[in-house]
Nucleic acid binder design. Sequence first.
DNA 1: AGCACCACCTGTGGGC
DNA 2: TGCCCACAGGTGGTGC
Length: 273
Amino acid sequence: MPELPEVETIRRELEPLVCGKTFAPPILHMPSTIEYPEPEDFSGLLAGNTIVNLGRRGKYLLFNLDRGILAVHLRMTGNLVYTASGLPPGERFLRVSLPFAGGSALHYSDMRRFGRLWLVSGPDELEEKVLKRIGPDILEEVDLDKFVALLGKRQRSRLKALLLDQGFAAGMGNIYTDECLFRCGLHPRRQVSSLSRKEAEELYRSVKSVLADGIEHGGTTFRDYRNASGALGDFQSRLAVYGRLGETCPCGTPIEKTREAGRGTYFCPRCQK
DNA sequence: AGCACCACCTGTGGGC
DNA sequence: TGCCCACAGGTGGTGC
């Protein structure tokens, strides 16, 4: 479900609601949601921790605690909802409830059960256990020079696969990758080595603009995504190509769909070369 | 290195 | 109407 803009939307909304709150013992409706440490250790270690602030790296949401870091990855259908009452949002797929001292709570639900939570002791263990293969955050940690340098190491990659690779840089997913490549007029199969300097710069600017626009509009609800209050995103109405098979591009050409890097891929065969 | 394929899950929508 | 298949915002492992 969520790519960088959706996770950032949740982060921004959640931060003022939960900063300063202290976790009570959690309720693990589905213990296997906890990836690290062992679920029985997770509960005791989390209780009593106070939230200092909320961070993010790529698609990972990071709760910085006074004694550790709680990391959450929502994968495809994960959903984190805050309720002031502490009552669960009444969903079928509730996996973990994280109540706070004082009565409010965070509830993690996830239809497809792919999402995971980790609790680590600090930044070093976060890198070691959670972010081992994750590159720099593509929105916050990659400027143009760094982007070009990273491209230099991936000359043989095709653009769709490259942008989806979280080890290259973290945050892009299937929707925003297609939208990004449409914006800069580059074909998903183009090889990095074929890009001119100007095309590389346009690619970089498109990454930034599409993510910024996604955040500005509260993310994209194509199917399941909800923000931390349960509301829908708003960017789906502004998608140029994703999900628009057969619809007409402003240039007059029908949008096509193929499979690239194992993912459904939408593009305009005339605008994207 | 890069890519294709499968696995992990549950639900939904299109075709017949 | 109902069944079956393909596909869905992600990622990790395997094997070529």
